[in-house]
């Protein structure tokens, strides 16, 4: 008994040490970012490791150089709309591929996975031409269209659907529910922790997306926050204090989404999968 307890104690100490160490390494750069945001540009360059007193100056600098509400609205609109559409379309497809198997669709699915392998840089010019012909250059629709049907997310939902208890579906069918009703009223609520994780990931990717928005967005009133920060950081002598305030502000929404969705995780965990 005692040795069991000792082992348990040792293993929990090891667990805490591991988690503590990994957490520290994960969080430290954020602390560094927060410190930088309170320092002047020169102090940031010189690697000053303590909090400074330039926070207000940096914030003011950021807000005067950037139309923060507009940029935020642009970024949030794109991120939220494309995340919701991505989740809807990809989970429908993931469910469809897993639940209604056929040889043709299996082939199509495999072919679809191949599209993941193409580096985006190689597709940019054809995509840009498509958007140009459709007259969508410099619109937020053009930013969203290529990302909402994500082979990656379809793959994710299909993999997760494998854990969806098929008895639930059978029972619902016996009760006379139609396929779309089963999906909407049974699958979606049951899989909510899957959706929560997917939401966080897609939102984060969309919020931080850089290369494609950069190519299709052309004017100041459509730009997203990563584009704005990137342009601030590339000045001949960038004000790193202001840049870091910008990065803190740009990071907050993704943090917020994560913290809000965490509750969903917990709920999902407390046991709807039965």
């Amino acid at each position: 008994m005692l040795s069991d307890r000792t082992t348990a104690l040792l293993s929990s100490i090891a667990t805490y040490l591991l988690l503590g160490f990994v957490s520290f390494l994960s969080v430290f750069p954020f602390l560094w970012m927060a410190i930088g945001a309170t320092n002047t540009s020169i102090d940031v360059i010189n690697g000053k490791p303590t909090f400074g007193s330039a926070l207000m100056t940096n914030i003011t600098g950021f807000f005067t150089q950037v139309d923060v509400p507009l940029v935020f609205w642009n970024t949030a609109k794109i991120a939220i709309v494309s995340t919701i559409l991505t989740l809807a379309i990809s989970s429908l497809a993931g469910y469809g591929f897993e639940m209604f198997r056929s040889r043709v669709r299996e082939r199509i699915y495999q072919f679809m996975l191949l599209t993941l392998f193409i580096p985006f840089a190689a597709l940019m010019i054809p995509l840009f031409i498509i958007m140009g012909r459709a007259g969508l250059i410099n619109t937020h629709i053009a930013v969203m269209l290529p990302v909402i049907a994500s082979a990656f997310m379809i793959f994710y939902f299909r993999q997760s659907t494998k854990a969806f208890p098929s008895e639930l579906r059978d029972a619902a069918k016996v009760d006379g529910l139609k396929e779309w009703q089963i999906f909407l009223f049974i699958y979606v609520p049951v899989m909510r922790s899957t959706y929560a994780a997917a939401f966080i990931i897609v939102f984060m990717l969309s919020w931080n997306n850089y290369l494609w928005p950069l190519i299709v967005l052309q004017s100041n009133d459509t730009k997203t926050i990563t584009l704005v920060i990137s342009s601030l950081a590339s000045a001949y002598y960038p004000d790193y204090g202001v840049v870091l305030v910008g990065t803190v502000i740009a990071t907050l929404p993704t943090l917020l989404v994560f913290f809000l969705m965490q509750k969903q995780f917990v709920q999902g965990m407390l046991g709807s999968v039965k």
């Binding site: 010019i125 584009l227 342009s231």
Partner: peptide, 23 residues
């Protein structure tokens, strides 16, 4: 319209190569 230097070059090269002049 203000972009990072590399970004201006990249946008210019994309628009010129794709022939989408209204961009």
């Amino acid at each position: 319209v203000d972009f990072a230097k590399l970004d201006v070059e990249q946008k210019l090269q994309t628009a010129l190569s794709s022939g989408v002049t209204d961009a």
